[in-house]
Write a protein that binds this DNA or RNA. Structure first.
Lengths: 214, 214
DNA sequence: GTCTATAAGACGATAGAC
DNA sequence: GTCTATCGTCTTATAGAC
């Protein structure tokens, strides 16, 4: 970062950003092994050797892409206030996660691929931070249960349900679109997912008044 | 299949099976693009050209592996009886799905990879069957809602929650183990997941009596 | 910084002896 | 059926002119 907080690596560096954007698409669609430096160069509109001028190797290029992805995730993992209302904390988390997968589908899929591969490239730091964040949320959920503010539930499994379902929308894009028979999922589709998921999580925790049958 | 229901392709064909097992591991861990014919041969204990004797090409070998995976999934997608009790139908589905990911983690991960890649190799037939099965279950859920046997819920989102959470256990093996701080997930871990998930699905549908606070 | 040309090696696939 | 040796191609990476 420079003195004004901008990333030095992208400071007015047009070519480098072009290449990074092209690389992100390539890695998202084909993974590290399937990605081709030639295609990344072609789609960025530069000769292949130009890519190597900015990034020493394919691994270095992938690291740069992954680093951007990690930054997004870190920014999103805001600390939780255990004094806050359980219903709002859970709702905020669900909506944040849905919004993240909607706005950054490529990053979500690259992250998913890392996880599926046993995250060989992912830093120990991010692994630790993710785990610590999940443990903090689990501890808060356990406190809420002890205080009888929500129904008893396995905190880790509840977190998995939220995490897995939101991830699923980005990861299994083709499958989801196949079941919906749609070419693209709209903003409204994501809003409905968020509403629906919030409602389901609240019911799991006994936080939603059971609606009277119509 | 022969007259006794065994796969002809594996009828006493030791070498071929050795190679298939080795290939399944390789494709599971590295995907199609990352897999190496040399490693598949080495881990099967045969020279590389022997692999090509049994399977014409890398694609043919991958097709053979994927075909085994597809057989597992098809066998599991049992038709649903809409007259049956919603609680039992949902519980059966959850337990079947958890058991499938527990018993066949490699198949689950290969399938997940296909889905993440937009299933380039997956047959139209399996795509259609999966979609039709999901639509049939969604229709049954809608019927139950109309009959006021369960609370109103988006049927597709409910199916996604079940599907995504169970998949997540197999797909994100490393992540799950990291959060649990375990090297391997035991049978008991999967049983707890199944119990917990059944309970959560039931609460979502209003099928579980809200337990009185202790 | 940008480009052309090419090196160096990995990879899937095959030929042909046994 | 099984194996050794090798082919042709694809891919990453680099050398060196401009």
């Amino acid at each position: 970062m420079d003195s004004r907080g901008r990333r030095i690596t992208t400071l007015g560096n047009h070519r480098r950003e072009q290449i990074l954007r092209s690389a992100e698409k390539e890695f998202e669609q084909l993974g590290f092994a399937g990605a081709r430096m030639q295609r990344i160069a072609d789609n960025a509109g530069v000769p292949k050797s130009n890519v190597h001028y900015y990034f020493a190797s394919k691994e270095a290029l992938y690291d740069a892409v992954l680093s951007n992805v990690v930054d997004l995730w870190n920014a999103a993992l805001a600390p939780i206030d255990p004094e806050a209302d359980p219903a709002s904390v859970l709702e905020d988390y669900v909506r944040m996660k849905v919004e993240l997968t909607r706005r950054y589908p490529a990053a979500t899929r690259i992250f998913a691929r890392e996880v599926l591969n046993g995250w060989p490239f992912l830093s120990e730091r991010l692994k630790r931070e993710t785990r610590e964040w999940a443990e903090a949320l689990a501890a808060d959920i356990e406190t809420w249960i002890r205080q009888e503010r929500i129904l008893p539930v396995d905190p880790r499994h509840l977190i998995f349900v939220i995490w897995a379902t939101t991830q699923h929308y980005a990861e299994s894009d083709a499958q989801v679109r196949s079941i919906y028979r749609k070419r693209r999922l709209s903003r409204a589709d994501h809003d409905r997912l968020a509403d629906s998921l919030v409602s389901m999580v609240h019911r799991i925790c006994g936080l939603e008044p059971t609606p009277a049958p119509v």
